[in-house]
Design a protein around this nucleic acid. Structure first.
Lengths: 203, 203, 203, 203
DNA sequence: AATGAATGAGAATTCATTCAT
DNA sequence: CATGAATGAATTCTCATTCAT
């Protein structure tokens, strides 16, 4: 009783405090006092501070990955350029939403996942690998279907990822005032043009 | 480049160790033993561990910023599209070189600058602001000259920055095997097309 | 020997784990998980970890003491030297058996009883006192009957105890390969000669 | 400066406190406050509480071993029984002295060396092996020279060790009132008789 | 300038014990 | 009787920083 509640409370507090103070500066005592449980209770659920962090990140990545697959697999679907453009918009909008819905953990991962002496390097790089592969696959498909063109699909997918990730980091987490509709519009146009999209194709 | 004095030795050691272990995991004792001086000596030159880090980052940013200005201020110069394309290539190549020449500190800054509970958030965000402003300025100029187009120059400059930074992070620091000529080619094409560059303009 | 109830299970587990890990390194959680009951159940039977240990030791000492009295009180009985020698052999053999039958607790007590910051000093020293007194009594009796001789019976009984205890510790617990028949033979001879036994006496 | 003093102070305090409270119950804070230095200083000299203990024990064993070799190697020297008896007395007296001079560490080792979940089992057993070997060697030599007799020299040396160690433990550390002259006299007689010493031999 | 021993606040983690169910 | 989540005191060890020499 209280079992899953306590663990959830700890996870939620951990996310909140990690986000505020960063992993290294967060004390287990901060987490437990935020969660309203005792110091020892923490260790009934997690072996260490690092373990909560990993658990949070992995949960997030799993969940986002699943949604990401659902959304992106129809990214360049469509028989006419208008349909494709519509789908790309839809995908970008969906991804914004996923990101926005998980803003706290996303921030945590993007901020913390890189530094910290490489403790979480593997987590960030693992996530990067997963997403790059998924994006590349879609880009390849569209290249084969002939309505976009890029010399190297892997490079292209790194561009798309960088473009997307840094934009959201910048506009959602740093500036915190984002006109998401506009961002979506500008991004879709930039991407499609960058990928030499054929705005007049029809199968 | 400077005289091989104690302070330089400490800075070089600090860069090396920070890069290997990250800021938080680096011990002052690691730095001094790498530099071959005693623990106390460190504090004759720096008030704290944080101070060396700031000094390293700020030196890097100052230096890169200067080069960056030099290079980018002629980014979209030229009276014909061919000249502009040539200049863009030149700028991208130069930036690659700057990044490559400072790979150690660049990695340090990009890896550490974000996390760490916001200690260095300000450094990273300061740097981001500087570069975004410089890029935006160039983009604006080119938009006014009429041969590129983008709905919002700030958004565009974030795209360019993200594109560039994450690509170099990925190919230079993670994959570690980069065909820089190809990357340059693909990047320039992607950027110019993304910015609706008029490949046929002539003044 | 008892009913296979929870308390016995806990005691048996406690003996096993204490023996493996020592008192201090044994966790109550080790004991209960070995016994297959929950953490709380332990405290329905024992007030503390120390209490199980005391209970185990005291049970052992009581039981051994009883047997020890039975056996030793006829140690030097007999009207001829041959009878006495036979009885001494019998006693030594019996004591070996007691020790062997209780090897686990014996080890526990001899290993743990001394150290641990004196927590169990009293237990070990109490046991020592009991056995030394019993031995001394027998030695006195034999001295009075005139067929052994020793300047100080207390010192002699300490010798006998040390001789016996360390031998069994060494051969049973450290070397683990003991030719008990030989050990018995050598020990009886050593003891009797050491005590200036008159191999030719007859009443 | 202060360097060896601090370390020595810590070792002396450690011996004192370990002896009073036992290894497990001793806190590093007890040691440092007794030594009058700060908590951190302890860790400039020892990696852990265990390390001081090992260092203390090993120093003691090394030192005692050296003296023990010096003394025992002439244990059964002599051309007449009287000379041998004299030598045995001398050796026993010397060993009492070594033990007495190092009473604090001896107590520490004999009390703590055994228990503690086997952490220091190896230390105690290592020491035991060393001393048993040295004793056995002397016993063998005397057996070959023909004036003592024992069926098994190894068993005999375990007897001698047990006899000696437990006596000193009992009379010096537990009873704390020992008539050492008498103990020596009784012990030498017991040992020699136990070993079937030929009180009339002459070469 | 250089040294390096000393400092001590601070953090993570452990585990015997309690108690409401 | 049994349970097991919760507790929190207690302890070890770390490491940036100071300062007398």
């Amino acid at each position: 009783m209280g079992e899953p509640n306590t663990k959830n409370a700890l996870i939620e507090s951990a996310i909140r405090i990690f986000q505020q103070k960063g992993f290294q500066m967060t004390r287990v005592s901060d987490i437990v006092s935020d969660a309203g449980v005792s110091q020892g209770t923490f260790y009934n659920y997690f072996r260490s501070k690092e373990e909560v962090f990993r658990e949070i990140c992995n949960d997030f990545i799993d969940q986002v990955q699943k949604k990401f697959i659902e959304r992106t697999e129809h990214m360049f679907d469509g028989d006419t350029s208008a349909e494709v453009v519509g789908n790309v918009h839809q995908v970008v909008r969906d991804l914004f939403k996923i990101y926005h819905d998980n803003l706290d953990v996303a921030e945590l991962l993007f901020r913390e996942g890189i530094g910290n002496g490489g403790i979480f390097k593997e987590i960030y790089e693992g996530m990067l690998a997963i997403f790059l592969e998924l994006i590349e696959e879609q880009v390849q498909k569209a290249v084969h279907r002939g309505f976009i063109h890029i010399e190297d699909a892997q490079i292209g997918s790194v561009f798309l990822f960088g473009l997307f990730e840094r934009s959201l980091l910048y506009f959602m987490l740093i500036q915190k005032t984002a006109d998401l509709d506009k961002l979506e519009r500008v991004m879709v146009e930039f991407i499609l043009k960058g990928l030499s999209f054929d705005y007049n194709f029809k199968i």
